[in-house]
Simulated scan of single mutants.
Amino acid sequence: MSAVIVGNPKPESRTLDAALQVHKALTGTDATDIIDLATFGPGLLGWGDPQVADAVSRVQAADVVVVASPTFKATYSGLLKLFLDQFSTGDGMRDVVAVPLMLGAGPGHALAPDLLLKPVLVELGATTPAPGLYLRDSSYSDDGVLEAYAERWGDVIARVRRTEVAR
């Protein structure tokens, strides 16, 4: 099972499209679970919402997850933060291979996936074997960056994914 988590406050956003493309490029398959956080509403603001708890369980059962956000104020979205807060520290994403993905308007925040999102995923217990990926929201579908990333890191992610599944 695999998933994409999208923290864009706009449903069916370019962030979602990019996450689905990254997932397919890395795994060769479509994601089996799409978690578009914009559709969750106020359930993300507290604890115990059944829809949010179900999404957390589905992420925990996934072997690979692309975690995507637009770049807001030089970091990932508050919506994604609210969702990630639902996972326990240390083992909330144990055995999950995570790929941090962020989209932005220009190259100024290209390190944000590695500096800001990846450490949170690691803190939650995810395995992040590749660098985070930053894509320009205006050109991700045709600038070759996504394909080059998948060519360089796809086999690594696949090997780690098989190892995590075998545990």
Rank of each mutant, 00 (worst) to 15 (best):
D17K: 12
V6Q: 00
V165R: 15
D155N: 14
E12R: 15
S138N: 15
F40W: 04
D155E: 15
P70R: 06
Q86H: 15
D155Q: 15
I5Y: 02
D30T: 08
L111R: 12
P107R: 14
G106S: 15
L44K: 07
A74M: 12
R161M: 08
V145M: 07
A112M: 15
L16A: 13
R14V: 11
V64F: 03
H109W: 10
T15Y: 04
S141T: 09
D137N: 12
R162W: 00
R58Y: 03
L111K: 12
S141R: 13
D63E: 14
S77Y: 08
R162L: 12
H23L: 04
T29R: 15
L116G: 03
L135A: 03
V120Q: 07
A31R: 02
Y134K: 04
Q21E: 13
F87H: 07
D114V: 06
K73I: 06
V120C: 08
K118V: 01
A25V: 09
R159F: 06
L121K: 05
D36W: 00
S141W: 13
V66F: 07
L16I: 02
N8M: 11
G125W: 02
S139K: 10
D49F: 06
G48K: 04
G43S: 07
D155M: 10
D91A: 10
R159E: 14
G144A: 11
D63K: 10
P107W: 11
L37C: 08
W153S: 04
V59Q: 03
A130Y: 01
P119R: 12
Q86C: 08
F83V: 05
P131F: 03
L117E: 02
N8I: 06
R14I: 11
F87E: 00
V67K: 03
G125A: 07
M1K: 12
K10H: 12
R162M: 09
S88R: 14
V122E: 14
E164T: 13
A38K: 04
V59P: 04
S69F: 09
Y140M: 08
L26F: 08
Y76T: 03
A98Y: 06
D155P: 09
R152K: 15
D155L: 11
P129I: 05
H23R: 04
V122H: 02
L103M: 13
D33G: 00
R167I: 02
P9V: 09
Y76F: 15
P131C: 05
D95L: 09
S77P: 04
V6C: 12
A61P: 01
T71M: 14
L111N: 07
T32M: 06
D30C: 00
V145F: 01
A19P: 03
V99S: 02
V160K: 02
D91H: 11
V65T: 09
A38P: 01
G92R: 07
V66L: 09
G154H: 08
G132I: 05
S138K: 11
V65D: 05
A68E: 02
S13W: 09
R14F: 11
L84N: 03
D30W: 00
T75I: 07
I34G: 00
R162P: 00
F72H: 14
G144S: 13
D85I: 13
H23G: 01
V66Q: 03
A166Q: 13
Y76L: 01
R161N: 14
T89R: 14
G106D: 15
Y76H: 10
D143M: 10
T29H: 13
K73M: 10
W153M: 07
I5T: 05
P42D: 11
